[in-house]
């Protein structure tokens, strides 16, 4: 009987392997396209853009972080300014992603970006609300396959992420369900060839029309950063930054932390707003000094530096005008530091 059972097992495995082999034939693979396995459609768009760019040029600077990086940093502007200031061509790429906490940024860098690119510099932008968040990547990615597997780790998580990375069949999980449900493909933001996403109308336009969906962004300004603040406030965020710094160092790149300006009313609406902003900057600066990391702050410690409404589409995402200004300022600070 054991021989018969063995035959059944071999038959099952052979059938699965046959399907795996068939899906590696380009014509079959095209007929059964993969689903986006990542938490957001924008991740795949960035992978494609990054691979296309690297076919032509090496990456000098990689910008990582949340959606504020996605919308506030324009690599084209940065490259132009930095190339002039440094006197040599600079190529940068933006992999900022929507809705990411610091831990999610770390996880995506560890499992994805560090394997796809070998930049000289990795610049991570941080803003106040991100640094004081204690949310973990596992929580954020809880409902998505690949990121959940990365975050869980262990045998099960590692097996799932291995299959995701190496099995054509596994990468097509759910395609039949999506087809049957008439599911629309998950789309990311429209990005340029360096990963920068197009900007939305400015905050002043949103306020003028009062019917823009980003009006919610303005409403959020009314609630200032007024919660209790002490040394523990940033403990989780700093611990994650330390891990990210180590990862970047291990992959042979220079890690840079940069402060992301926000609409100043978020601070100034709180009674101790200016002290709060300073405390946040001091904490980041001290952390960078302790760990031998370069810290860049284009605001020069002034919360009001980026205060014009035209710079913002909501209280922390920039318009094209805001992104251009930040990218220029950053290029200058970068050239001064590393020139």
């Amino acid at each position: 009987m054991s021989r018969s059972v063995g035959r059944i097992v071999v038959g099952i495995i052979a059938t699965v392997l046959l399907a795996e082999g068939l899906l590696r034939i380009p014509a079959v693979a095209d007929a059964v396209p993969e689903r986006n396995p990542y938490y957001h459609g924008g991740v795949q768009e960035r992978i494609d853009a990054l691979e296309a760019l690297q076919a032509e040029s090496d990456i000098d600077v990689l910008f990582i972080g949340s959606s504020v990086v996605r919308s506030n940093v324009s690599p084209h502007v940065f490259d132009d300014e930095a190339s002039i200031a440094l006197g040599r061509p600079i190529t940068s790429f933006n992999v900022g992603g929507s809705g990411l906490h610091l831990d999610s940024v770390r996880l995506l860098y560890e499992r994805l970006w560090s394997k796809l690119a070998e930049p000289d510099y990795v610049v991570q932008f941080v803003r106040y609300a991100e640094l004081r968040s204690d949310k973990t990547a596992q929580e954020f990615f809880a409902n998505n396959d690949i990121e959940r597997a990365w975050a869980e780790g262990g045998i099960a998580g590692s097996t799932r992420s291995f299959l995701q990375e190496h099995s054509a069949l596994y990468r097509r999980r759910g395609v039949l369900a999506a087809w049957l449900s008439h599911e629309k493909p998950q789309r990311g933001y429209k990005i340029d060839d360096r990963g920068h996403s197009e900007s939305k109308p400015s905050l002043s336009e949103a306020l003028a029309t009062r019917d823009h969906s980003d009006i919610a962004g303005y409403e959020a300004i009314a609630s200032g950063y007024g919660d209790p603040l002490d040394e523990e406030t940033f403990a989780t965020g700093l611990a994650v930054l330390e891990q990210t710094a180590q990862l970047v160092e291990d992959s042979g790149s220079v890690y840079v932390i940069a402060n992301m300006p926000e609409y100043p009313e978020k601070f100034l609406a709180a009674p101790d707003g200016e002290e709060r902003y300073q405390f946040y900057l001091d904490t980041l600066e001290e952390f960078a000094r302790e760990h031998g990391i370069v810290f860049l702050d284009v605001t020069g410690g002034d919360a009001n530096d980026f205060s014009a409404m035209e710079l913002y589409s909501d209280y922390h995402h920039f318009t094209e005008t805001g992104a251009t200004r930040l990218s220029k300022d950053l290029a200058l600070a970068f050239a001064i530091t590393f020139g």
Partner: peptide, 20 residues
């Protein structure tokens, strides 16, 4: 036909399950 049929079942189940 049972072994290939069961293999096909596993494949179809994989193509149908979305991870949630």
């Amino acid at each position: 036909a049972l072994a290939p049929a069961f293999g096909i079942v596993l494949i179809v189940v994989l193509l149908t399950s979305g991870g949630v």
